[in-house]
Design a protein around this nucleic acid. Structure first.
Lengths: 217, 217
DNA sequence: GTCTATACTGTGATAGAC
DNA sequence: GTCTATCACAGTATAGAC
């Protein structure tokens, strides 16, 4: 998730060409984007400085402008990437499921997929979760469509799973979806591997999902 | 929640004493704190500039230093206030409940209380929710105790309500509490009065809580 | 392609008039 | 008690060497 390069980069005072360490080589553009995702997910939109991002990528801030037009363009790239990635990840997972699978089971699979993706795999998506609400208007706008698609996907899962439960109206099911997904997203604020293994969180989250969608009285 | 004072304050070019508009009078210290809560809840920690806060309070930025030692001191005051307020609000509500009331009903009352307080009443608490994870270490530290107390309160409500359900271990119940409260906190990211009346959200949230804590198979 | 140097801008903070 | 003026610094962005 973050490169293991020494934070304090070796840099002779008036030295010659960079001579990048092995892990520094390769496509800088990607390294910069990764670094931006990491820093954004940690510091937030307004708190993520170009110098931090550059440091995370083992570069100087000015170098970022060779690859991105501006700070905002870089932020936007991270946010768009992150919002596309969760959706694709979840869609692919669902595509791999037995089509005859029960609706509640499918929803639980999505719960697990979302949780693992956000907490273990993608700083990009974590950046989206923590910053979608604080980013400038025009970036927000470019995210809305994609986030809307993911919402629709989840809504279809929730609607199917809520068949025959007390959640009857469209409005109730929308709110239910937002409450569930909200509980999952909020894990980025408190989950620490050291305290609770992710498997445990996943288990309880799916258990909760099942419990609340049981058919019955 | 925000003063209705005209944003562009009347200000003669080389004029005499402030002559504050009626709504500007009274304790500025409080107005500044309120303004800081509003701006923090909207812009986030790093994005909340002193000039924004001052404008919201109909003052100049330099004036804030008459009341607060620094920007961070002001932010800390907002955060501490906000975290105390939710807890007190919920405690008082619980104290007013019939002591014989069912544990699930009590939890639902807390769900309603938390939701209404955060979404309708307090920008302070909204500021806490959106910024607790982005605020500098030493502020965070001063919040932890208070937030911990609120967590304990909720844990006791969840533990009582989860008696006889499938959530048996301490770890499961802790995660359950965090998922529920997370779902509620996340509403600050999506709820808009125009789209869904708060009453509807409350209804669905309590319904969800009941559904997931039903005794049974 | 990455760096150093530097210009420009905005923000936190202080001094002192009123 | 609030303002204007100003400073100091941090952060974005550009220019140009290598």
């Amino acid at each position: 998730m973050k490169t293991s390069a020494t934070a304090t980069r070796t840099r002779a005072k008036a030295s010659r060409p960079p001579e990048p360490a092995p892990e520094d080589q390769g496509k800088s553009r990607q390294r910069i984007l990764d670094a931006a995702a990491t820093v954004l997910s940690r510091e937030g939109f307004a708190g993520a400085k170009l110098t931090d991002i550059a440091a995370e990528a083992n570069l100087r801030a000015a170098t970022l402008y060779y690859y991105y037009e501006s700070r905002e363009a870089l932020v936007e790239a991270v946010m768009v990437t992150g919002s596309e990635h969760v959706r694709h990840h979840t869609e692919e997972m669902l595509a791999g499921l037995d089509p005859s699978m029960d609706a509640v089971d499918r929803l639980c699979a999505a719960v697990e997929s979302h949780l693992r993706f956000v907490l273990e795999i993608s700083d990009y998506t974590k950046a989206v979760i923590r910053n979608a609400g604080q980013v400038p208007q025009h970036i927000r706008k470019s995210l809305d469509a994609e986030i809307g698609r993911y919402g629709k996907l989840w809504q279809s899962l929730v609607d199917a799973a809520a068949q025959g439960t007390a959640f009857r109206t469209r409005a109730e099911r929308r709110t239910l979806r937002l409450l569930i997904l909200g509980g999952l997203n909020w894990t980025v604020e408190w989950w620490e591997a050291a305290h609770t293994p992710l498997d445990e969180v996943v288990k309880t989250a799916t258990q909760m999902t099942r419990a609340m969608l049981r058919k019955g009285p």
